[in-house]
Design a protein around this nucleic acid. Structure first.
Lengths: 213, 213
DNA sequence: GTCTATAAGTCGATAGAC
DNA sequence: GTCTATCGACTTATAGAC
């Protein structure tokens, strides 16, 4: 067990760096704070990761990867479109609930160009063919008459926006409605239902209770 | 005209600070860069705004205020709900197009608690009564039978999410679809239409072309 | 009001002992 | 591998001349 202590330290550092970077961002984070959070000193940080840039790069990629990961399995299953939608929404909300800090970090980092994010997406999707499998799934549903003719890209942007936005706006929501917690079971169960119903039925008065899902 | 030069300089500083803070964030911004951007030196910055914190505070409030401002006039007009919705979407998309950098900045800053944001919202809405006028508008539409029974809060979160998300994800979108520009007339016109149709009709196959809006 | 020069402090990174 | 001590660069902020 030559390196047992080493791996432990390295993981502790990565975990600490992740917490600090997520909360403060790259510029706001301090190597000293990361060291302290990991229970070591600053010199040891540089021993393992040479520079702040390198350490950040590691954490950064891991975070981006985690953001797109949970959606993969649903794309491989072959469900009717309404079930697919419900699964998609539920899994994504659940994934966001587990890492609520990630969204702010991700979209802030995207200012820098989104190169890593785009590569991560492509890498994730590569196994499912050359074209974007999410777009393909929507397109297929349209062609099969499962849903009316929508623009697949805009449709995806709408779903993602509806899922992600409450987490982004969480600080405002909890201030404007002091009793409300975006991360609670109640809110998320309700959110899931409202997103699906809105997408599926719309709000036109004639559509009331057309389906009970 | 004793202070003519002064006001000019102050405004130039604020404009420069705004640009730099929006792009780099508070921690990433450098007083030197702001000075340079304003065409002055660093000492003069401190002469006008004493500290970086104070300067940031000014810019920060201005940016948050601007984010919620454009929605106000629509709430005062008395339109049928479908028209209200279309106006809301159009005006908000247009407002975001004019200041695409704002969204990343806003949601990143919200990590710190959203105190200023919440206060800004309340201040904006105060003139329209004690309750949130956006919620009230939705509620009224439900009671009047203009739309089916939706949860007003979730409905608002959905609209805002659909409007804001493309701007947040813009770097990814432009990389995954290299020909596509979120800020273009074509995209935004399409976006507006797709959001409204999705909200109004949903995607259930039976609803195809029920309305031509 | 505006400038140059610099003080005071912080931060990332390294040297060197153990 | 891990530590203490410290260097050197950068950054905010101020002193003082004009």
């Amino acid at each position: 067990m030559i390196n047992s202590g080493t791996e432990n330290t390295e993981q502790r550092i990565l975990a600490a760096a992740r917490r600090v970077f997520l909360q403060k961002g790259k510029d706001g984070a301090r190597m000293q704070e990361i060291a302290q959070e990991a229970g070591i000193n600053q010199a040891l940080l540089h021993y393992y990761f040479r520079t702040k840039d390198r350490l950040y790069e590691m954490v950064y990629r891991q975070i981006f990867d985690q953001f797109f990961q949970p959606l993969m399995p649903i794309l491989e299953a072959d469900l009717p479109f309404d079930r697919f939608l419900q699964q998609f929404i539920e899994i994504y909300l659940e994934s966001l609930r587990k890492n609520p800090d990630i969204v702010h970090f991700i979209f802030w980092e995207l200012r820098r160009g989104g190169k890593v994010a785009a590569r991560q997406i492509r890498r994730r999707f590569r196994s499912l063919g050359p074209d974007n499998p999410l777009l393909k799934r929507i397109h297929r549903a349209v062609e099969a008459g499962e849903i009316r003719r929508v623009d697949p890209l805009h449709f995806i942007l709408s779903i993602l926006g509806m899922c992600i936005y409450p987490f982004l706006a969480r600080p405002i929501i909890s201030r404007v409605f002091s009793e409300l917690d975006v991360l609670s079971d109640e809110f998320l169960a309700r959110r899931k239902k409202e997103i699906f119903q809105l997408i599926w039925e719309g709000i036109a008065p004639g559509n009331e209770n057309m389906e009970e899902k």
